[in-house]
Amino acid sequence: MSFITNSAIYNMITGYYFHSHVWMILTLLSILYLIIKAEKAVKTKIILAIVLTILTVGNDLSYIILVRFFAAASYYRFYWMVPYILIVSYTLCRIGLDIYYSERLTRKRKCIIGAALVLIFIISIVSTGSLYLQKLRSDRPQNAYMVDVDTLELQDIMNSEREAGNCEAMMIMATPSTLALQYQTVDAGSYMAVDRTTLLDIRAMSPDPATLEWYDADRVYLMGLCEDGIQYDANLITKAVQELAVGYIVVHKAYELDNYMSQFNYNYVGETTNYKVYRTY
């Protein structure tokens, strides 16, 4: 068994696709049941399909070859052709139909067996835990846009700034990444100086900003300031905001950076529930 559990493909499937072994076992049992109950001609086709699937996308060699063309993190998508929720649900219904049509069982026995199977199934799936029911309990949207309230408050501030003529239609903003990633989905009238590439591809490597291209280095500095409240040398931030032409900087209130921001000519213009907004003058 260890050669299976140690294989890259097994880890990919359990890590990305099934997550829970209960679901994997239920899927395998479902496929087994369908094979057993299938007519001979169909049975051969199902077995051939399984063999060919394993040969093409279900082994380590294919995995190594295919991830050269498709991202490793996208490999699980091949398994969307095995929609396990539909397979398991279908098998459940098939079992129900098979019990209903069984001539060997009395009506009473059919009911008992059916109820027992449904009970086992419910216990199995409930034991896997539910991501969605947990999320429904703990993290529900607070507004129609389904974004954090700070995002909409920031949008209001920016709209006020536009109406007051304090900025051009397109503005450049540096904000913490959580806010930046949400903000660009509600207001495309701004360029975000802290972006997804800086967050995921550059900063995640913990690079020395001095070794980066100027536009990446500037973003890393701004991200440090906005995200973590790091008070870099004012000259570095001044250079970064000038090179990227940043008009607005947003930082968390808890960092209390009013005095620091004024060192490179940024003034407080408003605040959201958690953040303060500064504008260059």
Binding site: Y17, S20, W23, Y76, I85, T128, S130, L131, L133
Partner: peptide, 9 residues
């Protein structure tokens, strides 16, 4: 409702 994997269908 009883799944826990976000990469599945």
């Amino acid at each position: 409702l009883f799944l826990s994997e976000e990469h599945s269908l």
